[in-house]
Amino acid sequence: MYLAILLVTILYLYTIRHSGKDLLEYGIVSAGFVLFPVTSMLIVVLFQGFYGYDETMWLLPMLVVPAYAVAEIKDVIPADSRKRFLMPIICIIIFLCGWMSFDKDGQTYLCGIDDATEYDAEFNEVYDIIIEDAGPAGAEGSRKIVMAAPREIMERARIYDGRIGLAYGRDLWEVDLDYAFYEPITEEARDIAEKMEEPLPGYPSGLIKNLLKVGATYLVFDKENLSYGEDMQYPAEFSSRKYKYSRFSETRHYVIYHLG
């Protein structure tokens, strides 16, 4: 709708033949280039497809020209009705065309970690447990942290602390991030990401093999995906021939293992 407002104000300025300090001319040229399909496609090609059509709107004087037109229109309207009706009507139109018209429902996105929710506090607890177990960075005997966990924990780990390494990054499920690094995502990483979200069989040999391959040193499992053993406890360890992951801590919803 702001685009419609821009086009209407350009038309208005053109109609009253206002030279408008280059605003009108720039508005016409930029609208022509951005809105005409051939030139807008050429702009997208110029950016090698990295930016889409939405970003080309940054080239339009979407706010400058309408604001200028409103400032100029006050000269045209008689003083009394201008004072009473013009500015409130314009503000209402701007408001209705703006925020209220954009539907944010259904948009799921990663919230800032400063939003205090029950789960956020638990995620921070998991990170703190792992960092404490690993020991001070650079100290003798400290462990390197390479974590594999359910997605909601993986997403925020490196935002919380840069010391927490991950078996795979957010670019595995956020395709918008796949431009940044040339590191390929391995099949083992994809398999781990899938299996960490599912209920685990009694002994997940394939998963453990892949985790060892990617060098994971810490595992975090959702308690809902683990089954009790005969001792009514979560599995004490997952071992292979040479290595084993031992359970060493847990929070309300998660069980944490480290490479022993």
Partner: peptide
């Protein structure tokens, strides 16, 4: 006029999150 221009522009910033890429 400057204040009118600035005020309208500012108001459009306040309520102008019309798309994911809007400034």
């Amino acid at each position: 006029k400057r204040l009118t221009f600035t005020g309208i522009f500012a108001f459009m910033i306040l309520v102008g999150d019309i798309s994911l890429k809007a400034p």
